[in-house]
């Protein structure tokens, strides 16, 4: 199992008001699956992705990543887990502005210490069709190209699980469709598990499994 969530609750405190963002969420995602997560704004999509991605601790419940519970893990262990097992793709691409394409893609490998395996980065860049843009900086690329760099970056560390938070939201429909095609293709070719949140029902339909979230509760 790639991800297992058991009775996940997430409560935020906004001043004196408590907001229950996730309400007893249980979810199992198999290795190699392609899951779309849909729901209106404020339904808890991003919170759920952050909990699955081990960047947000649930208020209660348990998260297992590839059979390993994250409960009680220290920050350094969580960082290693994220680096080794989970790749992220964000709506706003979130590339590191001072690094070029190759360096951005190499980044998850470089922070492991020692010299990064450049062949992995080159292969990831090639798989998203950006071999001709290695030395370009993010501000020299179009939105679609930037998102492809972000995908290559997520792939380079060979994480097994990729979490994409509305990866097509900032792109025009044609580019969005191309990005979705790329994700589906990578899932098929590499067997990488994808969890993709989106507002777009058409894009959602490309996934093998659909999960809908409403007011912090899952409706599959």
């Amino acid at each position: 199992m790639a991800i297992r969530l058991r009775d996940i609750e997430k409560t935020y405190r906004l001043g004196k008001v408590e907001v229950r963002a996730l309400k007893g969420v249980c979810l199992e995602i198999a290795e190699g699956d392609f899951v779309s997560l849909t729901g209106p704004s404020g339904a808890g999509k991003t919170t759920l992705l952050h909990v699955m991605g081990c960047i947000e601790e649930p208020s209660s419940g348990e998260v297992e990543i590839r059979g390993k519970s994250t409960r009680g893990m220290r920050d350094a262990e969580l960082s290693r887990l994220r680096n080794g097992s989970i790749g992220f793709i964000f709506q706003s691409f979130n590339l590191i502005s001072v690094l070029n394409v190759l360096e951005n893609v190499e980044y998850p490998l470089a922070i492991r210490g020692g010299a990064p395996d450049r062949s992995k980065a080159l292969s990831a860049i090639e798989s998203v069709g950006l071999s001709g843009f290695m030395r370009h900086r993010p501000d020299e690329l179009s939105g679609g190209q930037r998102q492809r760099v972000a995908i290559a970056r997520a792939l380079a560390a060979d994480p097994g699980i990729i979490i994409a938070d509305e990866p097509t939201a900032n792109l025009d429909s044609k580019t969005g469709a191309m990005i979705m095609d790329l994700l589906v293709d990578l899932n098929r070719r590499n067997g990488t598990t994808f969890i993709v949140s989106t507002h777009d029902e058409e894009l959602s339909s490309r996934a093998r499994r659909h999960v809908r979230i409403l007011d912090g509760e899952l409706r599959e």
Partner: peptide, 16 residues
């Protein structure tokens, strides 16, 4: 801030 958050999400440790 978001760039730092992205780095942390990718596994950048606190000392890094």
């Amino acid at each position: 801030m978001r760039e730092i958050g992205t780095m942390r999400a990718m596994g950048t440790s606190k000392p890094q």
